[in-house]
Write a protein that binds this DNA or RNA. Structure first.
Lengths: 212, 212
DNA sequence: TAGATTGTTAATCGATTAACAATC
DNA sequence: TAGATTGTTAATCGATTAACAATC
């Protein structure tokens, strides 16, 4: 089978959230038509997306909500356990640590790494804050699945270099900086606040222009 | 001319960041080839994207970095001034208020709205915290361009309803909830942490599966 | 000038949508 | 059973890439 398009993977969490919502409401079954009416998308796209996974026996009956959400959860690997570290526990970083369990289950935050002497040695929501000088050694000595990077743009690339050299496998990047991981097989998932706001900004400006 | 594809608009902030970086390094000119080598994309895509905007006189010479970044900035409306309010100044919300000026210039945060009696009446980085009960009236009585929504998933849709009814024009949505704004002409820009992490999670799980 | 590089058109590729036989 | 709904194939649509004349 051909490689599954990334656009499809990006839509799965959306389906999952919607199905979780319906499940929480006590709904039992939902058709692709009804689900997609709520999601404002074409039913054939949902069916096409699901067709990438596994041989469903042909079923001409609306989806079992609980079954489908488990299915999608399994595809996304929600049942797996991963470990994380956080680099740069400033305002945003600390907020992420505290909210982590609300975001996705199954992550253990092993530690946070900071430059600030006042913060080193303290804890954030039970997570110890270490000196960032020991970052590389920590990654080498522990099984760390992802590093959450929440430092300012300036030191972002240098810290990414340290992480990559130490053998990190994935970076969740909040720095608004495009990271270069060279030829290394490191996953980088970007959350660029600034790009998101600029995108919105474009349409706001556009609308202003129309009425001028 | 045909409508500009949203994918193109989404790439502009990336170009802008890269050009800003080169400009800060003191570079003067850059070719589409060199720029795209760094961005790991096809030069023809960059040129095609830029072609959507304005009639550039045909120039067969590498881009003037400062000129191009100003051009793209203008397209994205970075020179315009917008006003914002923040709904739900918890950890993430407060962090956003404090970092706002680092994200994109030109936004004034008029106020934050909270349910918590201890926070109402205080200030966050100079931004007053009001009672959320007054949210609708505030939006009606002030010119508010965007509402930043950083509340838990539970009350998200209800607050979106209040905002939409009060005439808000855009919502920057951090709630991990898909907001329904009905038929109203309201821009919704989503920053779904959970979707982003699940996307990364998929590839992590995938990689584990391969080696098992 | 000659080589490099642009803007733009045409070709390719992939993603979305429509159609429909299978079947609950 | 008949109507509804699925999974899947084919048609459409749009986005990306390649090619190239214009020109710095």
């Amino acid at each position: 089978m051909k490689r599954i398009p990334d656009d499809v993977i990006r839509r799965l969490p959306l389906y999952l959230r919607k199905l979780d919502g319906l499940y929480a409401k006590g709904e039992k079954r939902v058709s692709s038509g009804e689900l997609c009416r709520q999601l404002r998308m074409e039913p054939s796209q949902l069916r096409r997306d699901l067709a990438w996974f596994g041989d469903f026996p042909q079923q001409a009956f609306a989806y079992d909500i609980d079954g489908l959400r488990r299915e999608i959860g399994k595809i996304l690997g929600t049942h797996e356990e991963f470990s994380a570290i956080l680099v740069g526990p400033g305002k945003i970083g600390s907020a992420l640590i505290e909210h982590f369990s609300f975001i996705v289950d199954g992550y253990e935050v092993l530690g946070a790494f900071d430059v600030s002497p006042e913060r080193i040695g303290t804890e954030i929501a039970g997570v110890p804050v270490y000196d960032i000088a020991g970052l590389g050694d920590f990654v080498r000595e522990h099984k760390v699945d992802i590093a959450i990077l929440t430092v300012p743009r300036g030191p972002a690339q240098k810290l990414a270099d340290v992480l990559v050299e130490s053998g990190i496998r994935a970076i969740w990047n909040f720095t608004n900086e495009e990271l270069d991981v060279g030829a290394a097989d490191v996953l980088v998932e970007n959350v660029h606040f600034s790009d998101s706001l600029l995108h919105l900004n474009y349409y706001l400006a556009q609308r202003n222009g129309e009425t001028d």
